[in-house]
Amino acid sequence: MINLSWQAPASLAIILFALGLIGLITRRNLIFVILSIEVMLNAVALLFIVAGMRWGHPDGQVMFIFILNLAGGELALGLVLLLRLRARITTLDGDSANILRES
């Protein structure tokens, strides 16, 4: 019987989440913004796996599947929006996509 602490994998998930958040906030290229969001979703999914492990229950993996589901939908729409935005602006700079603002 192997005993495994759950803190270490949880910390790994948190570190990955933080990396994704840093990427989300600092990067201006919209491809990287979406990539960072994927990283963050992945980290959260990992955290659910850890929780499932901790309690020995399949719900963690069920939630993992739901997050995959969500990530898939989010990614598809996000990338399509990126393509549409490409037609409007000449760069992929997220900061220049503020043309909805009146002044």
Binding site: Q7, Q61, I65
Partner: peptide, 13 residues
């Protein structure tokens, strides 16, 4: 702190 190690296979999920 500690947890016992279970393998939760595809059937359970």
């Amino acid at each position: 702190k500690e947890t016992t190690y279970h393998i939760i296979g595809p059937s359970a999920v």
